[in-house]
Design a protein around this nucleic acid. Structure first.
Lengths: 221, 221
DNA sequence: GCGCTCCAATTTGAATGCAAAATTGTAGGA
DNA sequence: TCCTACAATTTTGCATTCAAATTGGAGCGC
């Protein structure tokens, strides 16, 4: 197994909440499970610690990072900035074909909205945001975006929505697609920021910080 | 020696160009020099690889990352976005005392400009940019900024300047301080972007990508 | 009965050793 | 003379081993 794979598998375990935020990461157990020894596992944990997904306590082991309200706010704030930048750049560089793909993804997402399928809606939603970021044609930006969104994914894509908020989100996505089709970078950037600001408010108002005993996965249902 | 120290020391070695971009990183040699064994060194290298400072080639060792023109452009682009965001947030959150500190740093920097001391000018310049980012009160943002700027530091703060460009940069910094004092977030964000865009143009026009045999350190003089 | 101290056991962090892969140097042939 | 194939050497990546630090608990004193 390659080093990057080890990092990826542990990342998945953490993002799935299999090891809940704040919980100790059992080195020996993970080693057995992944079929590797402690050396490569520890290398991966250090990398994930640098990413902010793991917290390292000297001589006391590693824990899955737990996000406070402040952390969540900070991450959303940065995410807004990154998406806004991506939106501007995307409008300059995106191809017509890519716009069409995003339009198709948007239509599919709206259908999931009409079906009331939140899970599929979120999946499509995420794909659109990622497509915009990728259309910016800046791998550095895309990398940071991936890293930042990974940390808030559970809060962002697991929050239940009220009908009003959901309707607003869909409306905002109409505007996003529209700005993209008009290649209105400034406009897109503003809409994306508002869109994310609303999302952040939802998440924070719902008290979705990863505090003790707040199992996000349960709330999907 | 603590893990983080190992990472920091290697980072310094790389940023100082002691191991030039593209060069192989001699594991054994570095181990002796730092007085550690290969295990912690390799852990540090993996972290630095995740940061983008080191390139890891499976079964072929690690090299100091070499930036192409495209990499440089991408990094500057992201840096612009981060500073613009930081500027906006800073205007909302900065204290009067912090503004005074930045004003003092600005005055000192202008004096270095008058003295024609580029090294000291760059040092003060960097301190101001960092102070603005810190005033944003967002550790996540500050962390990303540190990581991104580290990668372009050599190009950003080693480029020689023409008198015209230098004068323009100082003028822009006047505007930056002014916007900050007026707490004009939007204005500051625009100035910062323009300021960095100009810097990026300087760097790229000077052909400062880290291509073969382009020893940036020599150009300080 | 409660709390402190000291010791054992577990766990972390680092060094060493070993197998696999890549690089290099060399010899043989065209 | 140059290219190719092969072997020796070096280097990487990982497992194991060892020392140091922490945690938990038993025993002792208050």
């Amino acid at each position: 197994m390659l080093h990057e794979d080890v990092v990826g598998r542990i990342r998945t375990i953490l993002l799935d909440g299999e090891i809940p935020p704040g919980a100790r990461i059992p080195e020996r157990e993970l080693c057995e499970r992944l079929g590797i020894s402690r050396t490569p596992l520890r290398e991966a944990l250090k990398v994930l610690a640098a990413e902010g997904l793991v917290q390292l306590l000297p001589h006391r082991g590693s824990r899955a990072a737990k996000l406070t309200d402040k952390d969540m706010r900070d991450l959303f704030e940065v995410c807004q900035g990154l998406e806004a930048l991506a939106g501007e750049l995307a409008c300059e560089r995106i191809t017509d074909a890519e716009i069409d793909e995003i339009a198709a993804a948007h239509a599919a997402m709206v259908q999931h909205y009409r079906d009331g399928d939140l899970i599929q809606y979120y999946r499509g939603n995420r794909a659109i945001h990622e497509a915009i970021v990728n259309a910016a044609g800046n791998p550095v930006l895309a990398g940071l975006y991936t890293s930042v969104t990974a940390r808030i994914r559970r809060a962002r894509y697991v929050t239940p929505m009220t009908p009003q908020r959901w309707a607003l989100a869909v409306k905002e996505h109409e505007a996003i697609l529209n700005a993209l089709q008009r290649r209105d970078g400034t406009g897109l950037s503003h809409i994306l920021r508002a869109h994310l600001r609303h999302k952040r408010e939802e998440v924070l108002q719902a008290g979705f910080a990863e505090t003790e005993g707040n199992d996000l996965t349960l709330r999907i249902a």
